[in-house]
């Protein structure tokens, strides 16, 4: 009896197997797969305090156009491009780079306490965000796209509108300045 046939889905013809070549996965899986990377990118581009809004705007914009993006091959680069546009909008709105954190330590902190450790971790993160925000825009973006988002230099170059070699150089220079800033801050702090 045909009722015994197990169908994969209500649609019937789609079956239960792998999706067809140009079909899109549920957007839920896009958020689950790329959410963390895009959060790093947003934090890197606009700083941690504004990153949440930019992340939301990025995924809402992505969801809006998602049904017509079956041709997109590199989903991560696609999302980073949207995040970049949203970060540009954000900077245009606020017309300033994220503010450096206000005085990091007042008074010496105890040791060994978990609360203190997490505060220290947050402060460490703030130092990194602050140092990132001090980089020239191209270096900052190159560092964020390559080192935080994990994009290859070819994809970074596409975003920045320069060559792969230039993108690589910008990321290297950026990391060098970043480490210099961080070394300085850490020395001052201790």
């Amino acid at each position: 009896m045909s009722a015994a046939v197990k169908t994969g889905s209500g649609a019937g013809s789609a079956g239960s197997g792998a999706p067809a070549g140009d079909s899109l996965p549920p957007f839920e899986s896009i958020v689950a797969t790329h959410g963390a990377t895009i959060l790093r990118v947003c934090r890197g581009l606009v700083g941690p305090h504004n990153a949440d809004d930019v992340w939301q705007e990025t995924f809402l914009a992505a969801l809006r156009v998602y049904p017509s993006t079956a041709g997109v091959l590199n989903r991560e680069a696609w999302l980073v491009t949207i995040a970049r546009n949203k970060a540009v909008d954000h900077h245009r709105r606020t017309a300033r780079v994220p503010e450096p954190v206000e005085s990091v330590g007042d008074g010496p902190l105890g040791v060994g306490d978990a609360v203190v450790r997490s505060v220290e971790a947050a402060e460490e993160a703030e130092l990194v965000w602050t140092a990132l925000a001090l980089l020239p825009p191209t270096q900052r973006e190159a560092v964020v796209y390559h080192h935080l988002a994990g994009l290859r230099y070819a994809a970074v170059a596409e975003l920045l509108g320069n060559s792969e070699a230039a993108a690589r150089r910008a990321a290297a220079d950026g990391m060098k300045s970043l480490r210099a800033h961080l070394g300085q801050n850490r020395k001052e702090d201790s």
């Binding site: 994969g8 649609a11 549920p26 049904p67």
Partner: peptide, 22 residues
């Protein structure tokens, strides 16, 4: 569950809309 929830979600994405969210 025996239909495979992931497969069903993939199918919904294809036949209804890929804007599928928990």
């Amino acid at each position: 569950a025996r239909e495979g929830h992931d497969a069903v979600l993939e199918s919904l994405a294809t036949t209804v809309s890929p804007r599928v969210l928990l």
